[in-house]
Design a protein around this nucleic acid. Sequence first.
DNA 1: GCCGTTTTCGGCCCGACTGTTTTCAGTCG
Length: 579
Amino acid sequence: MDRSTIARALDDIAAYIELSEPNPFRARAFERAARTIETLQEDIEELVATGRLYETPGIGKAIGPIVEDLVRTGSSRYLEDLRKQYPPGIFELRRVPRLGLKKIGQLYSELGIASVDELEAASRAGKVAKVRGFGAKTQQKILEGIDFARVATSQILLPVALEIAQRLREQLAQIDIIADAEVSGSVRRRLEVVHNVNITIATKTPDRTMGEIRNRSIVDGFEIVDDTTIRGAVRGHTAILIHVAKPEDFGAAMLRTTASEAFLLAFEKKIAAGGFELRDLALFRRGRHVATRDEQELFHRVDVPSVAPERRESGDDLKRRRRVPLVEQTDLRGTFHVHTTWSDGRNSVKEMLVASRDRGFQYVGISDHSKNAYYAGGLTEEQLKQQQAEIDAHRGDAAPMRVFKGTEADILIDGSIDYGHGTLPIFDFVIASVHSRFNMPKDEMTARILRALDDPFVTILGHLTGRLLLSREGYSVDFDRIFERAGERGVMIEINGNPNRLDVDWRQIGRAVERGVLFSINPDAHSIKELSHVVSGTWVARKAGLSPKNIFNCAEVDAVAEFLSRRRSAALKKLKIEN
DNA sequence: GCCGTTTTCGGCCCGACTGTTTTCAGTCG
């Protein structure tokens, strides 16, 4: 059993304890142990075998045997017993905003509520408001929260959808009468949140193929919608649409099933001038069928320059004859915004550096949280010295990759940066982010961020709106004023590639480009695995129509080093003049 | 539940906000 699975089991135990016990510290102890195990540098089985497990901080005579159990048998008797005490779905209630484990535990013990449906019924009946600690207002907020949770569960994040789509595609491709199967729809457009997963297939025998898909139970709730469409679901609720086309129409079918409504309308209007029309999943010219074996052939036939799938939200690109090349993953030369175990990351400095080099980066910027971010283990000035010494000590391990030392510093309520000007000069770069008081009025939040942009040491503005897709609205800001100031001050704006954030939204980016703003595609990585968030970040950039020249980290290492050094010198100079 | 060269008991990363209360508990980051 690997360390992250053990950590998850300990987190589960902590959650059950929090449901049932008033003393929060026992649960905290399990959570702390989970974090310790997760970030362990040594082999967990080795620790158990030698008994040195008990030397690990946070693991004592109660948690130790549970960890041993997990390592040796892959399960924990203690956890299994806890599971039996509550209905299996009880944690689904955590999706409802403002409902924490304490309240969930109370609702279960007093009203027996263990699902969102039961919670809704009890709230509508006015029972929730009568529970001690609850009231009419809370009950109302719970009902609003249930709506929010329901909308969120009917949609899924892109990476989840992509994984489902790819697996489905592979299953379909294995059926020998299917000539081709490709992911289409909003997943192919790389939309950040999707309602359903679309797969488009090519087959000479549509009827037989539909029968085969039914017989193999590839989707649940198989249903034929029309001649070309199958509807179903997987994992209980993810809606699946399978589009069935002839091989000679696969190009038209892929275009049609990938396009948004707006793009399709604009496309049909454009090709109508040449006498073309799309009918169902095929292309026709003045009533005669035109073969389109793939999309390339389709674009060629109708004499329209091809538009990348990510750009098929609106008809904008169809209006332009010449277009700049969109940024590709392979254009990224490095990245910034990488956390380590010094704050809330799960891998050490060395592990993150080596993994970054192994991704082929020329450079990486390490940025742990700053002192104000207590909840994320932010670094005090003293810890910073140690962290920087450790980075210096491990530079060589990731050679020839270049390492930049930075921070993700907090933008305080008044817009100042929590590390003062006495500390900021020690960094090669500074990412400034808002992590508190999200519900400030728009004017105040905008003024707060504008002031941060005025700080000459700030290099990049982190996750501009703080949104968490499907779970939290971003803070409200005046985008235009922020973009304008960022352009004036030469502060870059982060494209945060964490699939839960994808912040700044691609829909806003065009306005920033007009004001000369540069972007940095950052993973906000808290583990080696999360370095791959630069991939989802690149999707956002592509959706916004960005090319490598708009992206700071598409620049070569020497140019980046020079830029950062020049910026830091200018800040120091300005600081001296001011003093 | 874990920890401890001022502690073997009494603390436990901090602060804002909200709604419930009449002094505070729960949630969120």
